[in-house]
Amino acid sequence: MFEDLSLHILDIVENSIRAEAKNIKIKITENLEKDLLSIEIEDDGKGMNEEMVKKVLDPFVTTKSGHKVGLGLPFLAQASKMANGNIFIKSKPGKGTKITAVFQHSHIDRQPLGDIKETLMTLIIGNPEVNFIFTYRRNGKKYHLDTKKLSKNNLKNLLNNLNKIFENFPREVKNE
């Protein structure tokens, strides 16, 4: 089990990357009025068939060689259910996958967001061939990051540019 939501997000997006996604959208919405927190991860990877979608929340399934159990999605399902929420999976072979996890924002067992910035830096630097679109909404305010607009030729410049972009993000996603 992971201790915060940013680690769940990293793990769930790694599934998308393994499914050969080229475009991955990550949306986090905090709505204090409705007492909701939602995380949405949408990819254009190879997708899953209906049978797989049903099985994937059962922690005794995986298609990867050498491993008998897949734990990532069951972990996220558990984290959301602990906080009076739920997980939804929509997927189509050849089209892509959308994972949505919702949480009761104020629930005592709702895990903290954690270091979303560190998760995004790891994903963006580690997978330069993938486009990431990150949207964070909190109480009507919207923050946006689209890596398509960034040059990835030089690692140091990319790090610099990402750090600059994150300066405009609120501290809730930076664990500061």
């Binding site: 089990m1 992971f2 680690l7 990293l10 793990d11 790694e14 734990l71 990532g72 972990f75 270091d115 560190e118 998760t119 790891t122 580690g126």
Partner: peptide, 11 residues
Amino acid sequence: MGTCGIAAGAR
């Protein structure tokens, strides 16, 4: 950066 790696602190 697999599940075990992430849980162990790979990030």
